[in-house]
């Protein structure tokens, strides 16, 4: 059991995909304009990542080395398409606000990176935990970034206004520029905190 707790800790904190490994930047910057979008994107990616990790792990002995990337992409895009259809049917509002970014989960490099670096070498249970850990790490980073951007750029947190009417939101924060700025500061702060804890 301890092993899995360690895996979770690594995925969320010490080896966080966004804040430490710096992968998956495109969806991170694009969907972190509000906490709702960030959370939705994070959880959708976590679901795809966990499923694809388990599938890749189960098939690791069958998939030949030469066509492994092509096979991973087929598996990942299968799950993404399934999730897109399910979201459109059961969570239409979230599907509408994430729009194009759901199909783009296919090219989220975190998912391909975990398939290649972890799931293809480990058993299904460990791979599932790895998927959940990395997915939650991605979600965690997205939510922090989105909270900062939504608060400064729109004056709200999860859609609820926190400042009075006189607050003038800094629109730049919810535009791409603000995304890069906020991400830089958050990574710096996160590194400082993690280093201190060691």
């Amino acid at each position: 059991m301890n092993k899995y707790v360690k895996q979770l800790y690594e995925g969320i904190i010490t080896n966080n995909p966004v804040l430490v490994q710096l992968i998956g930047m495109c969806p991170t910057l694009a969907t972190s304009t509000s906490i709702e979008n960030g959370l939705g994107m994070g959880l959708a990616a976590t679901a795809v990542l966990t499923c694809s990790n388990v599938m890749v792990s189960l098939l690791r002995k069958i998939i030949p080395q030469k066509i492994r990337i092509a096979s991973y992409v087929v598996i990942i895009s299968g799950f993404v398409t399934a999730i897109e259809m399910l979201m459109k049917a059961f969570l239409p509002d979230l599907a509408a606000s994430l729009g194009l970014f759901i199909p783009l989960i296919v090219v989220n490099c975190i998912i391909l990176a975990r398939a290649e670096a972890y799931a293809s070498k480990n058993g299904p249970l460990e791979s599932a935990v790895d998927g959940i850990a990395m997915g939650l790490g991605f979600t965690f980073a997205l939510v922090i970034l989105a909270a900062v951007r939504e608060l400064l750029g729109n004056g709200t947190l999860y859609g609820i206004p926190v400042f009075g009417k006189s607050f003038q939101p800094a629109t730049i924060m919810i535009m791409p520029t603000g995304g890069f700025l906020a991400l830089g500061f958050i990574i710096a702060a996160f590194q400082k905190i993690v280093k201190k804890g060691e």
């Binding site: 069958i62 030949p64 066509i67 398409t81």
Partner: peptide, 16 residues
Amino acid sequence: LVVLLFTFCAVVALVL
């Protein structure tokens, strides 16, 4: 390789 990759695609397509 072709047969394997084709099988993967066919299974995924069926499930979808």
